[in-house]
Computed example of a mutant assay.
Amino acid sequence: MTQVDTTGTGRTGPDHADTGPGPWRAGVRRAIRGCSRPEPWKRGPVLAALALLLGLLMLLHGRIPNRIGHLGSLVETFLPWFGLFVPVLLAGALWRRSLSAVTALLLPVTVWLSLFGGLLTDKSHPGGDLTVVSHNVAADNPDPAATARDLAASGADVLALEEITDQDRGTYEKELAKTYRYHTVLGTVGLWSRLPLSDTRPVDIATDYGPLAATKPAAEKLTYNRALRTTVTTRQGPLAVYVAHLGSVRVNPRVGFWTDSRDRGAQALARAVADEPTRRVVLLGDLNGTMDDRAFAGLTSQLRSAQDEAGAGFGFSWPARFPVERIDQILVRGVRPDSAWVLPATGSDHLPVAARVSW
Results as ranks from 00 to 15, higher is better:
Arg63Leu: 12
Arg63Met: 13
Arg63Gly: 11
Arg63Gln: 12
Arg63Val: 14
Arg63Thr: 08
Ile64Met: 11
Ile64Asn: 12
Ile64Gly: 01
Asn66Gln: 03
Ile68Thr: 13
Gly69Leu: 15
Gly69Arg: 12
Gly69Lys: 14
Gly69Tyr: 14
His70Ser: 04
His70Lys: 05
Leu71Gln: 10
Gly72Arg: 00
Gly72Leu: 01
Gly72Ser: 07
Ser73Ala: 15
Ser73Met: 15
Ser73Leu: 13
Leu74Arg: 00
Leu74His: 01
Leu74Met: 08
Val75His: 02
Val75Ile: 05
Glu76Ser: 15
Glu76His: 14
Glu76Thr: 09
Glu76Pro: 09
Glu76Leu: 12
Glu76Gly: 04
Thr77Met: 09
Thr77Phe: 08
Phe78Thr: 05
Phe78Asn: 05
Leu79Ala: 02
Leu79Gln: 02
Pro80Tyr: 06
Pro80Gln: 13
Phe82Val: 01
Phe82Ile: 02
Gly83Trp: 06
Gly83Asp: 13
Leu84Ala: 03
Leu84Asp: 00
Phe85Ile: 05
Phe85Lys: 01
Phe85Arg: 02
Phe85Ser: 05
Val86Pro: 10
Val86His: 07
Pro87Ser: 03
Pro87Arg: 10
Val88Phe: 14
Val88Thr: 03
Leu89Asp: 08
Leu89Lys: 11
Leu90Thr: 01
Leu90Cys: 03
Leu90Tyr: 02
Ala91Leu: 15
Ala91Phe: 08
Gly92Tyr: 11
Gly92Glu: 12
Ala93Leu: 01
Ala93Tyr: 07
Leu94Gln: 09
Leu94Thr: 05
Arg96Cys: 08
Arg96Phe: 13
Arg97Val: 01
Arg97Phe: 14
Ser98Trp: 11
Ser98Gln: 04
Leu99Pro: 03
Ser100Arg: 13
Ser100Ile: 13
Ser100Trp: 14
Ala101Cys: 12
Val102Glu: 06
Val102Ile: 15
Thr103Ser: 15
Thr103Phe: 14
Thr103Cys: 15
Ala104Asp: 00
Ala104Lys: 04
Ala104Tyr: 00
Ala104Val: 03
Ala104Phe: 04
Leu105Ser: 09
Leu107Asp: 05
Pro108Arg: 10
Val109Ala: 15
Thr110Val: 10
Thr110Met: 09
Thr110Pro: 08
Val111Pro: 10
Val111His: 14
Val111Thr: 13
Val111Lys: 12
Val111Arg: 10
Trp112Asp: 01
Trp112Phe: 13
Leu113Thr: 09
Ser114Phe: 07
Ser114Tyr: 03
Ser114Ala: 15
Leu115Trp: 09
Leu115His: 02
Leu115Met: 14
Leu115Val: 00
Gly117Pro: 06
Gly118Gln: 13
Gly118Thr: 10
Gly118Tyr: 14
Gly118Leu: 13
Gly118Arg: 07
Gly118Phe: 08
Leu119Gly: 00
Leu119Arg: 15
Leu119Met: 08
Leu120Ala: 08
Thr121Gly: 09
Thr121Phe: 11
Thr121Ile: 06
Asp122Leu: 13
Asp122Ser: 09
Asp122Gln: 04
Asp122Ala: 09
Lys123Ser: 06
Lys123Ile: 07
Ser124Lys: 10
Ser124Ile: 07
Ser124Val: 07
His125Ala: 04
His125Leu: 09
His125Gly: 10
Gly127Met: 09
Gly127Gln: 02
Gly127Ile: 08
Gly128Asp: 02
Asp129Lys: 08
Asp129Tyr: 11
Leu130Ser: 00
Leu130Gln: 00
Leu130Asp: 00
Leu130Thr: 02
Leu130Asn: 01
Thr131Pro: 01
Val132Ala: 11
Val132Asp: 10
Val132Leu: 12
Val132Gln: 06
